[in-house]
Computed example of a mutant assay.
Amino acid sequence: MLATLTKNEPNYIATFNRHYLHSIDEVWAMLTDNDKLPTWFPELKVDDLRKGGRILFDMGNGTFEEMTITDFHDQSVLEFTWADDSVRFELTSEPEGCKLFLIETITKLTDHTPRDLAGWHVCLDVIGMLLDGKQVENRKQMWEPLYEKYVQAINDLTK
């Protein structure tokens, strides 16, 4: 399911909604454990897991972008800066697993926005696949059709 895109002056909000047949503990570990993070987002590393702490993004050239953790509640909320935007993960328990919301607040739509949205979409799908014990064959093949759908979704939003 594609993210829901809305305009919330002056920003845009992308909300991803996933249900995983796994416990909050398992999903939280995927988001915050530096042994598990690289399995779905190799560039991310938690440097200091607390409100006011840091997540590092490996730029691939020996430098790291520091992202500040702006909200944190163990096992339920992780929010951090993402350039001029913010990314927020929220977890809630359900009878059969847990629900994850990823909410990205986007300050300005750019040509890169649909790339990021398709990337987050794939990341969330990969988390589910890995938790289910499945192999991820080709992320790019998963990403390409989603990118086109997010380009269209943004075009529809801005008409």
Results as ranks from 00 to 15, higher is better:
55 I>T: 05
158 T>S: 07
75 Q>V: 04
150 Y>C: 05
27 V>Q: 02
96 E>W: 14
140 K>T: 10
137 E>H: 14
77 V>H: 05
37 L>W: 00
159 K>N: 11
147 Y>W: 13
36 K>I: 03
106 I>R: 01
84 D>V: 03
84 D>Q: 10
11 N>L: 02
77 V>P: 00
125 D>V: 04
153 A>Q: 10
78 L>R: 00
9 E>N: 13
95 P>Y: 15
147 Y>D: 05
7 K>P: 00
132 D>F: 09
50 R>E: 12
113 T>A: 13
8 N>I: 13
73 H>K: 15
124 L>C: 13
158 T>K: 14
15 T>Q: 15
5 L>V: 13
85 D>G: 06
96 E>M: 14
16 F>G: 04
117 L>Q: 08
147 Y>V: 05
144 E>H: 08
82 W>N: 04
113 T>R: 10
135 Q>Y: 10
105 T>G: 05
30 M>T: 00
97 G>V: 03
40 W>Y: 00
21 L>V: 08
107 T>S: 12
25 D>W: 08
67 M>H: 13
103 I>W: 03
92 T>N: 10
71 D>M: 12
60 G>W: 07
33 D>V: 07
137 E>K: 11
4 T>F: 07
44 L>V: 05
5 L>Q: 11
157 L>D: 03
52 G>W: 06
99 K>G: 06
25 D>M: 09
78 L>I: 05
39 T>W: 01
68 T>C: 02
55 I>Y: 05
10 P>N: 09
119 G>W: 07
